[in-house]
Design a protein around this nucleic acid. Structure first.
Lengths: 229, 229
DNA sequence: CTAGACCAGATTGGATCCGATATACAATAT
DNA sequence: ATATTGTATATCGGATCCAATCTGGTCTAG
């Protein structure tokens, strides 16, 4: 028996596939706030019936990415400034706790991997990948924490915020500043300074929150008080 | 128009109904770790087809209450000691943050309501309601925080832990001690002491965690190293 | 000309049907 | 006797079909 086995039970169902695709589209901003999710349109796109699509939509609804109204359909939900701020605050708390737990367990290999992601982020010319690399960097560091529940919860918070973080990276200095802060965090981790890494991470997230708030305030001043929901 | 209107769009779908029922059964411990969820058995129970049942199961899976294995079915998932500990830690952090935010916005009316729940908890003879009243008490206090995302996240953590918290309340002194600690928290809230309330809440949760750990350790010592997963 | 009834198409929710997979057990070969 | 293979049944995932509801436009009454 030389064949390399593969756990077939891990192959995703059709519903899981559709879910992943829709989730990606939403967090990358491809599907925007308010966009409707038509079941049979999506079903045709994936060559399935509507059943797996409905499964995907209920998953998305549980994650808070879409809202389903009975007999009306599902729409992508965006965040008000207040909601986004609250989730940023949530991230400050959990990210700090997680990285503080992670630092003592970081191996040189993990630091090296994180550094590689960091430089990839710095040199990526395509803004489309910034969001992914940013997220990968943070998650790589957190990987050492061995706190799966915290990470799952964080993952959900990131999913809700990602669209806005990506927008923020595109702002003036957003990318450069994020990169500088990543390097600082990385160095704190490398020298085993858990509290330092936590403080820097909090500052990093709080900075993203504040610049995004300013940005949204400007937009709202321009277009009037739109969709406060 | 004297009729009290009801938002018909909020009327639950069949899937939502099944979900709520199964969720309740799981968090109350009626369905135990490892119990299988047979789709057509449940469908018969609720007089529906299997479609809404499947919807309910995907929701439960997103919440981490069950695990679905392709072509095998869904089973209720329990927590190892390590997992439960991690979620208790999560609660310490979030509960503290939420109650600290809530205290400044607490009205005398809200304090009174919380006190009512507290006395109901103290005098409830039926241990079946202890879990609900315990949860209601905490959520009532947190209601003033105006942090919906934090509360949703907390709700999920509570769902995962509730079975174990209920078990812990049944242990010697569990109920009495919880009641005493609730009163302390309530008094701190009443006098506007946010930090005090936060500290007492953390101690309250940490206490539950520790007694539960001891309890489980004893059980494991008795039955051997069972199901560490 | 406008407000409200009403009809038609679109869309979702749920039921039923069918193919795929797992599990348990019987049959068979070595 | 044991291990392997075939088969029967239970159960699940997905497709298709039907019913319930929403939406938009049209028509009529005032």
């Amino acid at each position: 028996m030389v064949l390399k086995g593969v756990d077939v039970s891990k192959t995703v169902s059709a519903g899981g596939l559709v879910f992943e695709a829709l989730r990606r589209a939403i967090i990358e901003g491809e599907l925007k706030d308010g966009d409707p999710l038509r079941q049979d349109e999506i079903a045709r796109l994936f060559n399935t019936s509507r059943i797996p699509v409905r499964e995907a939509i209920t998953m998305l609804e549980q994650q808070g990415l879409v809202k389903n109204q009975r007999y009306k359909g599902a729409v992508v939900v965006g965040l008000s400034v207040a909601e986004a701020s609250e989730i940023f605050d949530f991230r400050c708390i959990i990210d700090a706790h997680v990285i503080r737990a992670a630092v003592p367990h970081m191996t040189p290999a993990l630091i090296a991997e994180a550094r590689a992601i960091c430089t990839a982020f710095a040199s990526a010319s395509d803004p489309l990948h910034w969001g992914d690399l940013n997220r990968s960097f943070h998650l790589k560091l957190y990987q050492a924490s061995d706190l799966p529940f915290h990470l799952a919860s964080l993952s959900n918070a990131m999913d809700r915020l990602d669209r806005y973080v990506r927008a923020q990276l595109l702002l003036t200095d957003g990318h450069a500043r994020a990169n500088a802060e990543h390097l600082e965090i990385l160095e704190a981790c490398a020298r085993g300074d858990a509290d330092g890494a936590a403080d820097l991470t909090v500052a990093h997230i709080r900075g993203a929150k504040d610049t995004l708030r300013e940005h949204l305030a400007k937009i709202q001043a321009k277009f009037g008080a739109a969709e406060t929901r």
